[in-house]
Write a protein that binds this DNA or RNA. Sequence first.
DNA 1: ACGATACTTTTTGTATACGAGCGGACGGCA
DNA 2: TGCCGTCCGCTCGTATACAAAAAGTATCGT
Lengths: 217, 217
Amino acid sequence: MSKAADLAYERIRQKIITGAYGAGAHLKEEQVAEDAGVSRTPVREALRRLDAEHLVKFVPNRGAYVASWSTHDIEEIFVLRAMFEGHAAYRAASRITSAAIAELELCADEIDAQTPGQSERQRLNILAANQRFHGIVLDAAHSERLTKALAWLVEIPIILRTFERYSEKDIVRSNQHHREMIDAFRARDARWAQNVMDTHLRAAFRRYVVHGTENQN
Amino acid sequence: MSKAADLAYERIRQKIITGAYGAGAHLKEEQVAEDAGVSRTPVREALRRLDAEHLVKFVPNRGAYVASWSTHDIEEIFVLRAMFEGHAAYRAASRITSAAIAELELCADEIDAQTPGQSERQRLNILAANQRFHGIVLDAAHSERLTKALAWLVEIPIILRTFERYSEKDIVRSNQHHREMIDAFRARDARWAQNVMDTHLRAAFRRYVVHGTENQN
DNA sequence: ACGATACTTTTTGTATACGAGCGGACGGCA
DNA sequence: TGCCGTCCGCTCGTATACAAAAAGTATCGT
């Protein structure tokens, strides 16, 4: 796509994900434009796109605010994700190639390898491998629309840094789900894959809630 | 939202739905701007929104084209819709008010009343009542995100004028599904409601395909 | 001292003007 | 005659300038 608009889009997105723009912050077009080194026009375009992805919220004559989510919202998001990705896993079971399955296995291996210990570097590696895993499943579903519809749902947990709340035990369990899903794919058992994915995501939400109410308020 | 941008948005949307802008047509910003009586800036915004809703497709340095769908795309859309709306019906079963159920019944009555005969006026009334029915179910699900995620899926069949392909018998069957869904809601049986909705939409797709291959080509 | 109102400031929304990229047409060359 | 390169025109992409709307502030009246 266009140059400046994309640049603005990426910058804003990064700043939201890293937390530089906190939840609820008022994104003033001029200021953001200066940050990205472009004019207001491409910034507006970028904000529109982010609005479509639900990362920011537009208020009619007041501009864009970075989105914030209640626990209720987050449950909604996880349930939708479970449904979507469950469906993706179902479709993937009959379509996935053995090459893709091998890749999934690499992801699971990577996660296992990085699991002992809690360094920031390791957490990021695990997060990346996890994203790859889910990405591969989604691709294997061969449903472009599903992929697009899902994109924004997948990113929100990342923004919320849910992974920061996971203990070593949580990660081990999570990766056991991954392994089981691989088995289900090998068996071409769509319902099995679907159910594992559903379980996987519901468990993730549960961990989020439990650790959340412990640490936060 | 803003005035001119919304106006442009509505105008373009209408022209796409009514077919004034045919599938694959190149929407030139200047021309569209003239049509709507505003400048290019709000038009660009409107096009961006429509892009997010998958009604138009952006090509990097060439602008917006109205989207077109293959039969395969349409199947994908119907399957996703069945999943989504099925889920909505599931949620609605435990949340819907008796007032809303009464409204559903009015929609079903309206459809029955308009069914005998094939006048354009009647078709439009049936279409409207059908939309209302599905809208009420969606609202009753009380899931804002679900509603938004679904919006673009629901509209595509309307744009494709799938309803024009339905025979009187199809409509009768369709409305029987509506009645059964109402029963499921009254019984607060979530799975029942979900399955009826799923059936309802799969049948709709099937009718589309059958009548399509008969009439077209 | 408190509230309301008018004015100023800030920020968004819209229009227009300018620059860049792409495609098509024309002309030159083999 | 057929192919390739260059040039021109069309449309998009970006910047800037201007108008409108809302928030904040100070002043006036009660």
